[in-house]
């Protein structure tokens, strides 16, 4: 079975590009264009890896999605998905004055990897393959 990757981003171009990159390596891709739709798709598709943007419906929609997943306790509808590997992407840079890259993997930003856009196709593939291994 080919691994399934869920791409959640309100930027249609980013979704299309990311799909092209992963499909070239025969990954199966599904997409969502908002955090809300993303949560729905997680339950429907049960992906092997999630790529999620930060700013969608609002400035921090992506952060909230990540928290919903990671803090889902037993009995919660997301509990079964709380350990899916997460890769976060964002265009944000200096404006926030916080180096989020370093925060990846901590309780503050409980994702496995963090990348700034534009992401390099090769780097994205390497990271994703490692996370899926």
């Amino acid at each position: 079975m080919n691994k399934k990757i869920l791409i959640i981003d309100d930027d249609e171009d980013f979704v299309a590009i990311t799909k092209t990159i992963f499909e070239s390596k025969s990954f199966q891709c599904v997409s969502a264009y908002s955090a809300k739709e993303g949560l729905q798709k997680i339950k429907e598709e049960n992906p092997d890896l999630i790529i999620v943007d930060v700013m969608m419906e609002d400035m921090t929609a992506g952060f909230r999605l990540v928290n919903t997943l990671r803090t889902a306790e037993e009995g919660s509808e997301y509990n079964a998905y709380s350990n899916i590997p997460l890769l976060m992407v964002t265009v944000f840079e200096d404006v926030t004055k916080i180096d989020i890259q370093k925060k990846a993997g901590t309780t503050l930003l409980p994702v496995d990897e963090f990348m700034r856009k534009p992401v390099k196709p090769r780097e994205l593939l390497t990271k994703a393959e490692k996370m899926l291994a």
């Binding site: 171009d13 590009i17 992401v119």
Partner: peptide
């Protein structure tokens, strides 16, 4: 960034 990503791909 979108344009840049298309070029990269």
């Amino acid at each position: 960034i979108a344009v840049k990503q298309y070029f990269d791909v």
